[in-house]
Write a protein that binds this DNA or RNA. Sequence first.
DNA 1: GGCGTGACTTATT
DNA 2: GAATAAGCCACGC
Length: 110
Amino acid sequence: MLEDKDYFAEVYRVVREVPVGRVTTYGAIARYLSLRAGARMVGWAMVASHGHDVPAHRVVNRIGVLSGKHFFGSPTAMQELLEAEGVQVEDDRVVDFQTRLWDPSVELAL
DNA sequence: GGCGTGACTTATT
DNA sequence: GAATAAGCCACGC
């Protein structure tokens, strides 16, 4: 198989579908991909997302904290990116996170 | 193939 | 309501 990381591709797909100004959570993606408790795998997928066109800065943990901001090369890169897209970030946390939360199992729900 | 770690989440104390 | 414990699966040694 060319794509061993099947769910990796799925994660990338979902993250890419995230509209600008919105954010999603690892758990939401994991749940959408039936990775019920595989939220960590989603995070790992983000690590592997290096070299892909995946806006990982739109992915945060369930409380809207930029857990992986440190992985962007700069501790403020993620925040800058989010703010550049219209997402207000304060204290490493997304403002009105619940309101800006983009849940694939809800937005992409049929 | 086993042990430890990890961009997490949920449940229990 | 905050802190602690357990659960889950993949990757590195």
